[in-house]
């Protein structure tokens, strides 16, 4: 921009676009938490040991709490009467904005804990940044979420090390989990064109800026767990554009059945 130009005040159209982008971003974070929370809830009663049954379901509870806050924030900002419940239970697959990583099936415990570690390590970097977001509502949600995600990351990271540096079987399983899930990790550091204005306004981080911190944590844990870092030449993405795997359809069928079958029911 030439030095003689003055910066114009944002037009109403520009503000509306920024708000639409922010709502979409809130759905991205909220949906990622919601779907992962649902996946973790599938472990209830099936955990390999009682302590992990409880741990995974407690993490699911933290995540659904964060999802509620994020979705409620999006609904309020949209101002069209959609609540956290409407957003969670009445949207279909192509309207969901979650990372593809979180809709992957639970697999065995190694897959679940690897998924949790990769996701929570990202959540830690993301929420650390967002506590300084220029949007006060998002910053407040981030401050709370960061405290909880710190424990999730620690729990999952310690398990990666126990499994990687464990028995021959645990090592085989966790390496296989890592090899399978790695193709979903790049998506965490991608953005959409609509993010640019939000990044400039200091509301959200440049997603790629979260990578160094994530890499440092993941590398440290993989070294201690004696696991090799995968290097696939293929990656999966598209979640933020509503392009999901067939898994999400089954998740929503399960998760949304009750409110859709009994739309007038209330607690």
């Amino acid at each position: 921009m030439a030095e003689s130009e003055t910066i114009a005040a944002p037009t109403p159209a520009h503000e509306a676009q920024m708000q639409a982008s922010l709502i979409d971003y809130l759905l991205y974070l909220g949906d990622s938490n919601l779907i992962l929370s649902h996946r973790l809830s599938e472990w209830c009663g099936h955990g390999p040991v009682l302590e992990e049954d409880i741990a995974l379901t407690n993490i699911a509870l933290d995540l659904i709490g964060q999802a509620r806050l994020l979705l409620a924030c999006a609904g309020e900002m949209e101002g069209q009467g959609r609540t956290e419940d409407t957003l969670a239970y009445k949207r279909d697959v192509t309207e969901f904005r979650n990372l593809l990583l979180v809709e992957e099936p639970n697999g065995d415990f190694a897959v679940t804990i690897t998924r949790q570690f990769l996701f929570s390590a990202w959540g830690y970097e993301l929420f650390s940044w967002l506590t300084h977001s220029k949007d006060a509502g998002l910053a407040a949600i981030a401050a709370k979420s960061l405290k909880e995600v710190t424990y999730h990351r620690r729990h999952a990271g310690e398990w990666m090390i126990r499994l990687g540096d464990g028995t021959a079987e645990s090592k085989t399983r966790v390496q296989a989990a890592l090899d399978d899930l790695w193709i979903f990790t790049d998506e965490m550091f991608q953005g959409l064109p609509s993010d640019a204005a939000l990044i400039d306004a200091g509301i959200i981080p440049d997603p790629d800026s979260l990578r160094p911190g994530w890499d440092a944590m993941v590398d440290r844990v993989l070294v201690e767990a004696m696991l090799s870092k995968p290097a696939p030449d293929f990656r999966r993405d598209g979640g933020r554009l509503g392009r999901h795997s067939e898994a999400l359809g089954f998740i929503l069928a399960d998760m949304q059945f009750l409110p859709r079958a009994y739309p007038d029911a209330s607690w």
Binding site: E51, R153, R154, E158
Partner: peptide
Amino acid sequence: RGALFSDDPVVRCPKCGAGETEKISEF
């Protein structure tokens, strides 16, 4: 509380007061 396998502070047993306690699960 981010460090893995970090030196957590000593938690005293609320029943007998001893410091030799161990964490069974984070949750």
